[in-house]
């Protein structure tokens, strides 16, 4: 497995295989604003397709497609959560400004989810089934503490996955989303305790936000996702 990966990487870097030309093709597609097609092109080798539902669960896939599906899974979780928050019995207890913020965040997360779905096209994992049994959607504290956990986790996940991405355009897309997640995270934290927007729970002594590798993120997120996810093919 590692050998295969190394070969692919060295072929990629040497520029002597078909892979680099397919990546150049991708970049041209992306430049033409056709990333959806490009994603299909990037995943066109048969063994690069995610296997979707198997006995081991929904396979995120490998390489950049795997990372994008990983992000898609997390965005599905966040979007489902905020959709239930805004529709739930506890929403009325928030102030008007807070309601507007939570509605904006819901819309951003739905936009992220649908973006990944469209961009991944045939490589996208299916819709995941969530498990929110631990969340009380009638209770402000339960809503905000879960929102905080999800937003901080989202930041840590994107930050930890950036180094695993091979394509510059995908890296930029992840960057465009992670800073919005960080804006959400800071707001939610301030709604719980003003001034906790970037405290030592999430920022280390060098002023760097703490990141998490996919396996650590999925171990936490998994408690809220009923569908079994197989991340074993993700790059590490």
């Amino acid at each position: 497995m590692m050998k295969t990966t190394d070969n692919q990487e060295s072929q990629l870097i040497s520029g002597k295989s078909g892979l680099i030309s397919s990546r150049r093709t991708f970049l041209q597609f992306a430049g033409a604003g056709m990333a959806g097609m490009a994603l299909v092109a990037a995943g066109c080798k048969k063994n690069r397709y995610p296997n979707f539902e198997t006995a081991d669960g929904v396979d995120l896939g490998k390489d950049d497609i795997g990372i994008l599906n990983y992000a898609y899974a997390l965005e599905q979780l966040e979007a489902a959560f905020y959709t239930q928050v805004v529709a739930g019995s506890g929403f009325a207890a928030f102030s008007d400004i807070e309601k507007a913020y939570l509605t904006d965040i819901r819309d951003h997360e739905v936009a992220h989810r649908e973006f990944f779905k469209n961009a991944l096209q045939g490589n996208a994992i299916p819709a995941l089934e969530v498990n929110f049994s631990a969340i009380n959607f009638g209770d402000r504290t339960s809503i905000l503490s879960t929102a905080k956990a999800f937003e901080d986790l989202g930041c840590a996940a994107y930050n930890g996955a950036g180094r695993l991405i091979k394509d510059k355009n995908y890296l930029l897309l992840a960057g465009k989303i992670v800073s919005v997640e960080a804006r959400h995270a800071a707001l939610i934290r301030d709604l719980i305790a003003n001034g906790s927007f970037a405290n030592s729970e999430v920022v280390d002594a060098n002023g760097l936000e703490k990141s998490k590798a996919p396996k650590d993120v999925l171990a936490i997120a998994g408690a809220y996702i009923k569908t079994k996810i197989n991340a074993s093919n993700l790059p590490s």
Binding site: C155, Y158, N159, G162, G175, V178, S179, V180, E181, A182, R183, H184, A185, A186, L187, D190, F197, A198, V202, V203, G207, L208, E209, K210, S211
Partner: peptide, 13 residues
């Protein structure tokens, strides 16, 4: 990236 998201948290606040 870890600095980038801290700057975004600052911006939010």
């Amino acid at each position: 990236l870890n600095i980038h998201s801290v700057e975004a948290r600052h911006a939010s606040h």
